[in-house]
Design a protein around this nucleic acid. Structure first.
Length: 442
RNA sequence: CGGGGUAUAGCGCAGCCUGGUAGCGCAUCUGGUUUGGGACCAGAGGGUCGCAAGUUCGAAUCUUGCUGCCCCGACCA
């Protein structure tokens, strides 16, 4: 992509409404624009990251056996009257009346609707297990939206719903999502720790929040250092084998958010392994049994021919929130530092003297070769000044910057800078291409 | 929903106390000089001063009401 034809509205100054670093950087880097409290337009750069995150989520959901569909944002109130939540939900639910005076709502979640889809089509245990998910915009009319996209009213969420014949099968479904989440966040360059969450009226041990560690995180968390050294399950993990050893390995060491914190249990850990840090919740999984299948009459036939309500679980990932969480975890004073897997572009190619035959020729040539190699390049072909170009590249945080200027190119060399480490080296076009291909194409 | 702020050009701000018809920096446009870490000079365009009443000869400025947005708390993906 040529910067001269792109839309990248950089801000030199920080809009005063932005308090936390991710919000500031997202506004300054031209990723989002606030339209109302907690409601954002996604500008091209931000949208690219959102799509990268979605793609990773989709790949890992597929690996774990979840099947994607898409439900609407607007739902009929009647479904929610069936479950009893239409009255229970409160003012966080945005209620809408259509032209026929029918009660509608902008969905804050989709348990009712997915249960409706399920019950209309699935009748037999032979169709189970089933896990259906979608990635869709939700709306919760928070009293106080804040922290930019981390606490928006409108937000993009992946929500999966599992259906099983009994609680034991539901546990397997739960474990599949558990393992899938470990992989999903790891691929985004995030260290996510599963922490036991409040199970409410359902009880049991099947509810976990996935918390990423970031020094600017919203809540305090406590954990055993052992968790930081665990290996993420491999891509070839058999999700339909017994996953409980993996889940056990990740749930045995102590880890808790401040609301679930047990000072005594934490104190029992060896002192040098106690970690207290700050975290951001990016995922939440839980089993809720037959709560909705009972209320909405979603039954399946067992092998004995009897009918039982289906056991369900739901599994959320805050996709738009992850943008903020990623930046909280990966930035410095100059701007964002994107992990390559979610970076809006892989490489920022800077032509320091646009219009000059030498730099134009060398940059155009490298640009074409990088793109041909499957590397996503933002090519700054504008005639701005060097300092401003460097500052912009540092701000938007692409993993690599390649600088083509008259000084280096008279010797045939580009300067390649690693955004994360700040390391720079002068390389020939061939060496530049090889280095970037090696670093960015797995 | 309680508490506290704030609203003046695209962004960041001053002006308000003590009413006299709006200004600064950045950004934008034009011309010139520059050119490897957010250049310089000269000129130009751009504002219903959040909205509505009121006081006054006169309101960005004083009064009242409303609204938007932000922060702290309670709540939450």
């Amino acid at each position: 992509m040529r910067l001269s034809r792109y839309f990248l509205p950089i801000l030199k100054e920080t809009p005063k409404e932005a308090e936390i670093v991710s919000h500031r950087l997202m506004l300054r880097a031209g990723m989002v624009r606030q339209q109302s409290a907690g409601i954002y337009s996604w500008l091209p750069l931000g949208l690219r990251v959102l799509r990268k995150i979605e793609r990773i989520v989709e790949e890992e959901q597929a690996r774990a056996g979840a099947v994607q569909l898409l439900m609407p944002t607007i739902q009929p109130a009647d479904l929610w009257r069936e479950s009893g939540r239409y009255d229970a939900y409160g003012k966080e639910m945005l209620r809408i009346t259509d032209r026929h005076e029918r009660d509608m709502l902008f969905g804050p979640t989709n348990e009712e609707m997915i249960t409706d889809i399920f019950r209309s089509s699935v009748r037999s245990y032979k169709d189970l297990p089933l896990n259906l998910y979608h990635i869709q915009w939700k709306f919760r009319d928070e009293v106080r939206p804040r922290f930019g996209v981390m606490r928006g009213r409108e937000f993009l969420m992946k929500d999966a719903y599992s259906f099983d014949i009994d609680k034991e099968s539901a546990r397997h479904a739960y474990n599949r999502m558990f393992v899938s989440y470990l992989r999903t966040f790891e691929r985004m360059g995030l260290q996510a720790i599963p922490m036991k969450a409040d199970t409410g009226p359902i009880g049991g041990d099947m509810s976990h929040e996935f918390i990423i560690l970031a020094s600017t995180g919203e809540s305090e968390v406590f954990l055993d250092k052992a968790l930081l050294d665990l290996d993420t399950p491999a891509a070839d993990t058999d999700f339909f084998a017994d996953l409980s050893p993996i889940v056990e390995a990740w749930t045995t060491p102590y880890a808790a958010t401040d609301e679930m914190h047990d000072e005594t249990a934490f104190g029992a850990i060896a002192e040098d392994r106690r970690v207290s840090a700050r975290g951001i919740e990016v995922g939440h999984i839980f089993y809720f049994g037959t709560k909705y299948s009972d209320a909405m009459n979603a039954k399946v036939a067992t092998s004995e021919g009897t009918e039982v309500p289906v056991h369900m679980g739901s599994y959320g990932i805050g996709v738009s929130r992850l943008l903020g969480a990623l930046i909280e975890a990966h930035h410095d004073d100059d701007g964002i530092i994107w992990p390559a897997s979610v970076a809006p572009f892989h490489v920022g190619l800077v032509n320091l003297k646009a219009g000059d035959a030498l730099t134009d020729g060398a940059c155009e040539d490298l640009y074409a070769k990088l793109e041909a190699a499957g590397i996503e390049v933002l090519y700054d072909d504008t005639d701005g000044r060097a300092g401003a170009k460097f500052a912009t590249m540092d701000l938007i945080g692409l993993p690599f910057q390649v600088v083509g200027g008259p000084r280096g190119l008279k010797d045939g060399l580009f300067e390649v800078k690693d955004r994360a480490t700040g390391e720079k080296e002068m390389l020939s076009p061939e060496a530049t291409l090889n280095k970037l291909v090696a670093a960015l194409t797995a």
